[in-house]
Amino acid sequence: MTSSTVDSAFAGQPDEPHASSLAGRLNWLRAGVLGANDGIVSVAAIVVGVAGTGSPTSAILAAGSAALIGGAISMALGEYVSVSSQRDSQRALIEKERLELQTDPAGELIELAGLYQARGLTAETALQVATELTDRDALRAHLAMELNIDENDIASPWHAAGASALAFLIGGILPVLAILLPPETIRVPVTFTVITIALAITGVVGARLGGSPVARATMRVVVGGALALAATFIIGTLLGTSGVV
């Protein structure tokens, strides 16, 4: 097979998993699903707990709003700090590699060839591959092989923070609406039902994105969320009936 044939075949399959941005998109989708799931469970647990005390709708609305805003800000701050630390570390590694290429290009070429040889290529082929990649973009070749980093694909902490907060808000608004819209006599059962369905959906989506068994992953999410809601509702009911609140 000639090189032109390989290039043509590769160009004709843009949606295959070897597309460079696919892994990044999947990571963002998984993070969004997890953020929405956090919003669903945490906000639902709070509003159900407050409802269990027998508090009026205004108190439930206040608690749900506080949980929404506080949770979204907390998620955004956590993601910003985490991604900022990761970005700083990646940038430091990139600059270190750039300096090594400037000061010892021959040694870096030998190192890259050795890495390809360790992957199973013959010494001659490994040196040829390393040479061609170095001639094209030495820094990119070393970052990809040594550190699995793409210089042009470093996550933005601001984007990560915004996406995390938005995912939490989207998930968290659901239990607030579910607890406030139905009549008072059935709002808790309705909320339990709505949240169970929502968790099942996020469980299925997360499992498919992660390539894990759908039934097992979904069951974990649903059971965990149901236990959280049941626990807060029982605690809220006990506090309400005891006269503490």
Rank of each mutant, 00 (worst) to 15 (best):
M1I: 15
A9T: 15
A9C: 08
F10P: 11
Q13L: 15
Q13I: 15
Q13N: 15
P14H: 07
S20H: 15
L22N: 12
N27K: 15
W28D: 15
L29D: 08
A31E: 14
G35N: 04
D38Y: 01
A44E: 04
I46D: 06
V47Q: 00
V47N: 02
V48W: 02
A51V: 03
G54W: 00
G54P: 02
P56C: 06
T57E: 12
I60Q: 10
L68A: 00
A72Y: 00
I73V: 14
I73K: 04
S74N: 11
A76G: 02
A76S: 01
A76W: 02
G78N: 05
E79S: 05
Y80E: 05
Y80A: 13
V81D: 09
V83R: 02
V83S: 00
V83A: 01
D88F: 09
R91G: 05
R91Y: 13
L93A: 15
E95W: 09
E97Q: 08
R98E: 05
R98Y: 06
L99T: 15
E100I: 08
A106P: 10
L112N: 01
Y116F: 10
R119N: 10
R119S: 14
G120V: 02
L121H: 06
T125E: 14
T125P: 06
Q128M: 14
V129N: 05
T131I: 10
T134V: 11
A138C: 05
A138Q: 00
L139Y: 00
R140K: 13
A141H: 08
A141N: 09
H142S: 00
M145R: 13
D150M: 08
E151G: 08
D153W: 04
H159F: 11
A161Q: 07
A161G: 03
A163S: 12
A167H: 00
F168Y: 10
I173D: 00
L174E: 10
L177W: 10
A178T: 01
L180I: 14
P182A: 01
P189H: 00
F192Q: 00
T196S: 13
I201H: 06
T202K: 07
G203L: 03
V204P: 01
V204H: 05
A207L: 01
A207K: 06
R208K: 15
R208S: 09
L209E: 01
G211D: 07
A215M: 14
R216S: 12
A217H: 14
M219E: 10
V222Q: 00
V222T: 03
A226F: 09
L227S: 07
A231C: 09
A231N: 03
I234M: 12
I235T: 10
T237Q: 14
T237V: 11
T241M: 11
V245H: 08
